[in-house]
Design a protein around this nucleic acid. Structure first.
Lengths: 186, 186
DNA sequence: GTCTATACGGAGATAGAC
DNA sequence: GTCTATCTCCGTATAGAC
């Protein structure tokens, strides 16, 4: 793996673990096994590196969610697959955690990929809910946008509860609770 | 207001805005209008100050949530009141945001008040859901623990979505979506 | 109680040699 | 491309005077 690649991956890991404010260039270099000069040769600095890392992480999350939501099965199946997918719960969401970082939120460039990911996710979820309603499979009383936001929020909030407790249990409860929204019409 | 009090409040604000890793003693002193020596006279250091501030913030949140959940009205009314309460959505949750701070999560003392708050909240919410089910007011198919976790997660996740978008809208959608869980049995 | 002085390491980067 | 030197602030205190 190239040095550039190792720097990028180290940055992705550190952003996940410590956020932008908690991540130092020195730590990136240590993780990547790269020297000072090397890092500043490949990237303009911490900001530049973080921007590239955030874009990548967001793109990966999008692909993973899309695989669940555009896969086979009914609307409820696909939302269920998204909700039940295995996650590293105690590490939190690598994109969602950035919303709590003041330097990311204050910087339009850094925030943009985060914004776009969640915007896409809510839209895609609401499309799937709408399909389910149209097919008569989900309760017609469900508002697609509201339900989509609640589902996305259950996952993001599940991470919050789990990290507070240092246990995956609250996350799993939240996911099961959210599944109650799309339980098949009886 | 005493200097000690101003230091505490400044710390609460800064923890909310920047988290533990993003908050410096110097910033606390500036916000509080207190000198270096003054701060170290009243508190042992950043950690000590943060511990006192987190305990206070968590206690305030508990009292606010309890006012909604133990107020008058049916179970659905009270959960509705909790969900719809006005919040400073774009600032995020002053307690929930701490779960994304690596130094808070790594320190059992700092994490404890956060853990206790969310544990209490999920328990209290599940009691109210159980009451509603017993009263025949909520769908008997609802699992109280799962539903409680989903409701707490919708709020916490709503903050995440809202901060990503820098708009309160996704939060409001998530709350309305979560209300679907407790819509009165027809 | 509050102030000023002092300390030492780290954050975040630039410069130039190799 | 990578290395080492250097730089300027800041983070996080401690010490002792007032």
């Amino acid at each position: 793996m190239s040095t550039r690649e190792r720097l990028l991956e180290a940055t992705q890991e550190l952003l996940w673990e410590r956020g932008y404010v908690g991540m130092s260039p020195k730590a990136i270099q240590r993780e990547a096994g790269a020297g000072q000069g090397s890092m500043y040769h490949h990237f303009a600095g911490k900001h530049d590196l973080a921007l590239a890392a955030i874009r990548r992480t967001a793109e990966r999350m999008r692909a993973a969610a899309d695989a669940d939501l555009s896969g086979p099965g009914t609307a409820a199946d696909r939302i269920g697959a998204y909700l039940r997918r295995e996650r590293e719960v105690l590490r939190g969401c690598p994109v969602g955690r950035l919303t709590q970082d003041p330097d990311v939120i204050a910087d339009p460039e850094l925030r943009r990929p985060v914004d776009e990911l969640f915007d896409w996710l809510r839209t895609r979820l609401s499309e799937v809910v709408a399909e389910g309603v149209r097919a008569g499979e989900l309760d017609a009383a469900l508002d697609p946008e509201d339900t989509a936001a609640a589902i996305a929020a259950a996952v993001q909030g599940g991470y919050v509860l789990a990290r507070a407790a240092q246990s995956a249990e609250p996350f799993e409860h939240a996911v099961r609770g959210a599944l109650g929204l799309i339980r098949t019409k009886s």
